[in-house]
Amino acid sequence: MSVPKLAVWKLASCDGCQLTLLDCEDELLSVAAKVEIAYFLEASSFKGRGPYDLSLIEGSVTTEEDLHRVQHIRRVSKHVVTIGACATAGGIQALRNFADVREFISVVYARPDYIATLEHSTPVSAHVAVDFELRGCPIDKRQLLEVLSAFLAGRRPVIPEESVCVECKERGNPCVMVAHGTPCLGPVTQAGCGALCPAFNRGCFGCFGPLRSANAATLAGLPGVTRTFSDFQEAR
C-alpha cells in the first residue's frame, strides 16, 4: 500500500487547530512515519502536489479567494476533514454574521477600500462536501489522533456526541449551575474538552459547539436556569 498523503490547509483562523497536530509531541514523529505530509505550510517548505488522501482544513470561509480554495481542496482531496470551530461552524469571526460587515471594516481599517471580504463567515460544509467535522476551539489532540487513525484505517472516527455534562460527571465535578448558580452551556454543548471549565469553577462557554440532540428549549424553560441566564444577560 502506498503511503497516504496528508495536506493541512488554513483559512480564516488563529492557527491553533493545526498547531494541535504539532502539539502531539509524543506522537508527531510516529504520525509522520505513517503518512506523507505533502502540504503543510506552517510546518514545512515542501509543497507536494495533490491529489491528497486526507485534507485537514482549519478556518472559516470569509473571502472570495478562500471560497475558490475550498473548492480546489475538495477537488484534489479524497477525504476532507474540518478541524475546529472555525472550519466546522464559522468560528468567532462569524459574529460578523449578525452585524454589518462594512461597518466592521470601517471600525478596524483606515482604508476600507483595501479590504476584500465576504459578508458572512461560513463553515466549509456550506460550500463543499465534508467527510468529517472535528469540533472544538481548539480541537482536542486525542480526538485529532483518533480522526487520523480512523482515516488511515479506513473507518469512521469514534468521537463521543454526548453533552459536556457526561464528562463533568465522569470527572466528578460538582455541577456549577446547581452548586453555585453559575450559567453553564454544558447541557447543550458537545463533549470533547473533558469538562474543563466546570473543573475550574466556571461555566462552559461552548467551545465544542451545540449538541446534536440538545434540548435547549427545556434548558431555557427551567425557571432557575432562565433566571440565571437572564440575570447574566442583565449583568452584562
Partner: peptide, 28 residues
C-alpha cells in the same frame, strides 16, 4: 490573512469577555 475584525466584534460585549475572545486571535 483574511481579516477577522476582533476590534469591531468586541464592541458591546462585557468587560469580562476579552481574555477569552482575544485569545482566539492567536493559537500560538
Amino acid at each position: 490573512e483574511p481579516p477577522r475584525f476582533f476590534e469591531a466584534l468586541l464592541r458591546g460585549r462585557a468587560y469580562t469577555e476579552p481574555p477569552d475572545i482575544t485569545a482566539r486571535i492567536c493559537g500560538i
